[in-house]
Design a protein around this nucleic acid. Structure first.
Lengths: 307, 307
DNA sequence: GGCTTTCCATACATAAAAGGTATGGCTTGC
DNA sequence: GCAAGCCATACCTTTTATGTATGGAAAGCC
């Protein structure tokens, strides 16, 4: 049983004769006769009685006709679906992103634009810190991630620079620090700091600490928070002050005052998009294309390399 | 997209390489390579990336694999279904039968035996008088009928004699007729008769009347009933006496006494099975085969003839 | 690092299948 | 009885599929 035979068979049934079907499918009548016989042989069943006026379906023929219609329809649908999938109009896309950057205008523009351009794609966004994102990118449960990386070169991954963050100081609005903002880190030697865990985002943490080491600054930590949102809420509650990525100031937070310090702005925190190099998902490639549009061509794309 | 290509594709996916698949499906590797390329061309989509260690599915390939499994499964199921249908193990069979004969032991044996032998067949029994049965046989809504016919030759139908009925007298048990059963029709000239309509079963009616005409007997009809069951219930209620087919006595009915009369037993009422000559349903042919077993080879089968 | 193995791709030849043409037999309708 | 329409068969051509031989590329192994 082949699709061609089913095509012919449906034509024969619907025209009521092999000759008429041969005109419809543009194939000589004996060829059709032969294909119908082959189909009958294959199914080991008579599909129709031949008469001088045409053919008449047997019970088996009627049954096959119903099924054939469905099979041919299924084939057409599969072809259509694969075409949509191949162009990225349909499919699934899992994007990881740090909570901190959900509110950055360009990132929001990227996500909104993608959903608008490709409404057929099931677009799922996972709020994850850089460390977990990297893991899940490698294991394949994320298609792309927006995260901090220690380098553009990531084995098995491709990367693209989105923007450069730096660091800022976040102080409670109700505190003396808000009334008289510090001008330098030196003034913060005795301050109470809310701090993050290294494991949440090792790259960010190490980079920041290396920077402070160069400045010979070591904060007095009184409290730890799991992510920047948590840390900022603690700052707002007056538990202390914190050093956070500049992206955190993208949307105003009640009770928080952000303070720029030259020493903190000097700490470069590049934000990357990364995806598995072997990921051929057209939906992903469309996302990468949209990144070029939203973030411009300033970024660098690097082919991932093993080792 | 052809089934052969899907077969190959599934093998390639499941073995993880074209070479391994070629061993599994017993086809040379270049032939498989070519078919996979043809499939990709047809779908206008890359289905896998080729590597030195084998192939790796693309997103489209994964999607097609799921679909291919289902299509191939559907094909196998259709083949199995058609085979079952061709052998009459599966399908539908509509049998018409007069209510009168539902209780005849051989008929009950036929129906019970059929259901037991072919449990996969949807076996529907329609209680219909001979006239409607003939109509519905011709129009195709019945596959077979058990009915009275005026002749074995029926245009477009095949027929088979099941048995010979004759006529009997049915009298109320509570009536004087029951206490002193008549010995001849002559004694019934003044009796009240419950009678049937001609339209319900013209053949039966005409045959019976022709018989009575020969005997110069004409009953005094006081009441009409639609079918024999109705007529018998009227007899049981004491409304009169009735002349019914001998098959009616197959199961005892409360309030009824059946009386044999030589003049009534002389009226031959052959009972037939009939079906459309062009009906190729294997389920039907199995039923006909069972008839031979149950009713023996005494009956005559006649090929129907148009005109 | 060269060697081997294991893939896939290509080129070409062969076998199989599908399609086309011609024709005949059968039924139907005039 | 004759023409028309339909299906089947025979035979030939074209297309498609398959097989064999071979080459190149990547991965694993001394």
């Amino acid at each position: 049983m082949e699709f061609r035979q089913l095509d012919y068979f449906v034509a024969v049934v619907e025209t009521g004769s092999i000759s008429a079907a041969s005109r419809r499918v543009h194939v000589a009548q004996p060829a059709l006769t032969r294909q119908m016989r082959l189909l009958e042989d294959d199914l080991d069943t008579r599909l129709f009685d031949r008469h001088a006026r045409g053919i008449r379906l047997t019970v088996a023929g009627r049954a096959l006709y119903e099924e054939a219609i469905q099979l041919l329809d299924a084939r057409a649908q599969i072809k259509a679906r694969l075409a949509a999938l191949g162009s990225g109009q349909v499919g699934k896309l899992c994007l990881g992103i740090t909570v901190t950057h959900l509110w950055v205008p360009d990132v929001a523009r990227l996500m909104g634009g993608y959903r608008q351009c490709y409404p057929g794609v099931a677009f799922e966004v996972f709020p994850l810190l850089s460390g977990p994102q990297l893991e899940r990118l490698r294991e394949g449960s994320l298609d792309a991630g927006i995260l901090y990386l220690d380098s553009a070169e990531q084995p098995g991954l491709e990367t693209r620079l989105l923007q450069h963050d730096h660091l800022m100081l976040a102080v409670p609005e109700a505190s003396p620090w808000s009334a008289a903002p510090p001008a330098s880190l030196d003034e913060l030697k005795e301050a109470d700091f809310v701090w993050g865990f290294r494991s949440a985002s090792p790259v960010y943490y190490d980079r920041m600490l290396a920077h402070f080491e160069r400045l010979s600054f070591s904060p007095r930590v009184v409290q730890y928070g799991a992510d920047n949102i948590t840390i900022l809420s603690m700052v707002a509650a007056g538990l202390g002050i914190a050093i956070v990525p500049s992206a955190s100031s993208a949307h105003p937070m009640p009770g928080i005052r952000f303070v720029h310090l030259p020493e903190l702005e000097a700490c470069d925190m590049p934000l990357w998009m990364a995806w598995r190099a072997s990921n051929d998902s057209p939906a992903l490639h469309n996302l990468v294309g949209l990144v070029e549009e939203v973030f411009g061509d300033g970024g660098v794309s690097s082919p991932g390399q093993a080792g």
